[in-house]
Design a protein around this nucleic acid. Structure first.
Lengths: 116, 116
DNA sequence: TCCATCGTACGAGGGTCACCGTAGTACGAC
DNA sequence: GTCGTACTACGGTGACCCTCGTACGATGGA
């Protein structure tokens, strides 16, 4: 079995029924957070916070991950000193079918359109 | 032909290439604006600003319509004293396929889920 | 035990946002 | 020209958001 360490540190997550569309859209409307979500989507496995090399400080990174978690977009849990992050694909697909995929595709298209 | 009055009053709209995903998501993340977009989508024809009965003052309503226009979500033009509003369905569908439909469907589902 | 790593909590600054009230402009009807 | 309707521009206010620096806690390994 997978041993989950992290001790008594518990993270609050909204239940599916408490996830609000406005909150999800607001969470995705920030460039940093959208970037995190895109990387999580393409990774297909949990990624630690330190995996991401965002052009902001650690405290700002913590803030963005908290917004994503509290809006219901990602799920977070501890393993040792690391905090792992995963998209809540199933919950989002049940609440807002096609929304996450459309946003991810749009982000990919926009990156191709604007990127070098 | 349809005579468009409104004279010298010209409204700035972003070209499709200038529409940014973050801006669109931010515009849709506000309850008032999401409500406007849903009503425009179900109307299937232009609606004047005064058609909407939002629980805010007129100046705030003007602000929200301006955000929607400048983010590229709606198109506005004058006809007489009225200012008409229409969704930029084609432009959005070309840039972000499926995004608008997914958001509209999600908004409908959420209203049914939370509503009376 | 001591340390390095990883992430958090807190406070603060600077900017943006949503909202309002008032004053004003553009248009059509008379 | 005058009036009413529709909307705008402007200024202001309080709240929120993104960002940071610093100090702190929690974990695992030497």
């Amino acid at each position: 079995m997978t041993r989950e360490t992290g001790g008594g540190r518990v993270l609050e997550h909204p239940e599916p029924a408490a996830i609000r569309l406005e909150g999800v859209l607001h969470a995705l409307a920030d460039p940093m957070r959208l970037r995190v979500v895109c990387e999580l989507a393409s990774a297909e496995s949990e990624l630690s916070c330190s995996y991401f090399d965002l052009p902001v400080t650690k405290s700002t990174t913590t803030h963005h991950f908290r917004v994503l978690r509290e809006s219901g977009v990602i799920r977070q849990f501890y393993r040792g000193t690391a905090k792992l992050n995963a998209l809540r694909r199933d919950d989002l697909a049940a609440l807002f079918p096609g929304l996450l995929d459309a946003v991810l595709e749009a982000a990919g298209k926009e990156e191709a359109r604007l990127g070098v």
